[in-house]
Each structure stands twice: as C-alpha cells, then as structure tokens.
Amino acid sequence: MMSDYALQQAFNALSVGGEYALLALGLAIVFSVMHLVNFAHGDMITVGGYAMFLLILFGVRDPFLVLPFGVLITVLAALLIERVAFKPVRGASPTTGMLTAFGVSIIIQNVALIFGGSRPKAVQTADWLASSLSIGSVQIPVVQVLETVVTLAAIIGLVALMRYTTVGLAMRAAAKDVPVVRLMGVKADRVILSAFAISGFLAGLAGIFILARRGAVDPFMGFAPVLKAFVAAVLGGFGSLPGAVVGGFALGIAEVGLQVLLPPEIAGFRDAFVFLLIGIVLVFRPQGILGERPDFGEKS
C-alpha cells in the first residue's frame, strides 16, 4: 500500500533528521558559547563506540550497562578534549580553533586505526534495537521510533535547561557577551565545560543509534554523520540552536526524499544532490533558515 510506504519513509526521514539534529545541536552549543567549530565532534562518537566495544569484549553484555557507558565515555571524551586541546586556544581566532579541532580529529581517527585496525569491529548493541514494530500493517524499525522519540525528548530537555537553569541562561548569554556573563559572577570555564558536556551527551545519544544501525565500529565512523550535521547546522543558521534542529530535520527529509525520488541509476549521487540543493538554498539565504544576518554595527 502506498500510504504504508509513505509512513515508513516518514519515520525514516524523522529518525535520520533526528540524528542530524542531535549532532548539529551539539555543534551549535559549543560554537555559540566559544566560537569553536568542533570538527572532532564525530570522533567523540567513535571513542564512545570503541568504549562499548571494549566493554562487551570484557563480557558485559547487558545493554542497560553498555549503552549508558558509551554515552558516559562520549561525554568524558568531549570534556577531556576541551581541557587538552581547546583550552589552550581559547580566545584565538575561529580559524585557529577550527584547525585545532581538525587536528584532534585526525589524531583520534589514527589512534583508533593503530590500536583497532581499519576493519570494522562488530558491536551488538541490543536485540530489541534491531527489531521492528508493527503499527497496523506497517513495519517500523524500533531504532527509528526510538531515535525520533529520544531526539524530541532531548530537545525538550535542552529547552528546559536553557530556560530554567542558571547555567543554561549563562550559556545563552555567553553566546553574545562572555565578559558580561563573567560580571554576573559566572565562571567562563563552567559555561564552556557545560557546553561540552551537553554536546558530548547529545553526541553519545546519536552515537548509540548510529551504532545500532551500523552494528560495528571503525576509526572513521564519526566523520560522515558529523559532516552532514555541519551542513545541517549551516542550513539552519550556524550557531543557532533552533536552527540546528530545523536544519537537521530539513536535511533528513531532503535525504530520504531524494532517496525515494531519485531513479536507482543515479541514487549514488544522492549526497551530491543534497549538498547542491542546500548550496542553492544558501545562495538565496546566506545566513541560513533561522540565522541572523551578520550585524556589523553592533559592538562585540
């Protein structure tokens, strides 16, 4: 039935979009607070993935231990990278920060390559993640349902955090004026570490779903999804949190839409078409869907 197919694809688009939204949100939070373009974002997922792989290797199989452990390690990786690599370049130009992150990304990938080899290593996340849910006559993979739900929950949680907690208010304020946030008696360090912790947490959540789909870890697994997330963030308006969500879902929908519409001979070109489409959107709206026009008059 056509509508069944449409429903299936709709869930597919929502879950793919949700994954991009989670990752793009993490990028946007860090960018808005410290103007760092974190190219190493995806490699935190890789670190979390290998951590789960190792835990399973040591005989722990309970997904309710393995999955949270993966998220925890992703968060710790984010915090550690901030301390070791990003803190020394704090306050430097965005180019410097971006290249530092790029370097960190290459290092993590290659450390994984040396110790883990380039072949993917199987990671069994949880049986129920790999199963399907029947809604009437439609089969929807549990991963997709869960990913959509978790993404929405994470977004709601994040909105609450940014609105009702002091550190959330401070993060929003720091996006515009760090010195004055410090004048409120808030440590700049605390704001930045919180941003990384949240960004790592969201990446960890996305990582679980990425792993559940792939069923394996490899040194470069984080790169492709995060590249998409970057594109989503630019599409939504770089540095804007609502923009990250909108951009993420828009990209997911565009991808799945093209997958469905493109004839099979040229389906391989999907990513090229998606990027091209976004390029065209940005020609007409350079600041992104929800981005602000750069304001040169304002004192920063």
Binding site: L169, V181, M184
Partner: peptide
Amino acid sequence: DLTVGENLRLGAAC
C-alpha cells in the same frame, strides 16, 4: 535575547 526576568535571574548567578 534573554527576557527581563532571565536577565535579572542571571544577575544573581553567583
């Protein structure tokens, strides 16, 4: 971008 209330709450952050 913060509301008046949020500005005031942040003022008491310490």
